[in-house]
């Protein structure tokens, strides 16, 4: 788990990680917000359902794929936090139409 250093980098931006309010420094990424919130996993893999947290923090590994403001498959480490941003863990593969029933393979 990561902790902020508010004396050095004041946490001024409020975002919601899995619905819970978290204050993070301006310029931090959504992935940083997830780590500062202490979430056990930012996603569960589509293949085996294994928990993952961000690994590279620089747009390489895609292990931080999350649902941000309702859009799935966002690279959370490449998205800068904005006030009120909603960040949710992504479980399995993104559904093509989130509001529709899961598709049944033919």
């Amino acid at each position: 788990m990561f902790v902020p250093r508010p004396d050095i980098r004041p946490a001024t931006v409020e975002v919601f990680v899995e619905g819970r309010p978290v204050l993070v420094p301006e310029g931090a990424s959504a992935a940083a917000a997830v780590l500062l919130a202490g979430l056990p996993a930012i996603r569960e893999t589509p293949v085996k359902g294994a928990p993952r947290l961000p690994y590279c923090m620089m747009g390489i590994c895609f292990d931080c794929l999350a649902e941000i403001d309702g859009v799935a498959n966002r690279q959370a480490c490449m998205v800068t936090v904005a006030p009120g941003m909603r960040i949710a863990a992504q479980r399995g593969a993104r559904r093509a139409r989130p509001d529709a029933a899961p598709e049944i393979a033919a």
Binding site: F2, V3, V24, A28, L36, L53, Y55, C56, M57, D63
Partner: peptide
């Protein structure tokens, strides 16, 4: 692949961008 394992550079980016430490 376990949560909690990451690149050293990733931790440095967290320090630079958010002032965060493990």
């Amino acid at each position: 692949t376990l949560p909690g394992a990451m690149g050293a550079g990733a931790a440095q980016i967290l320090l630079k961008t958010a002032g965060a430490v493990p």
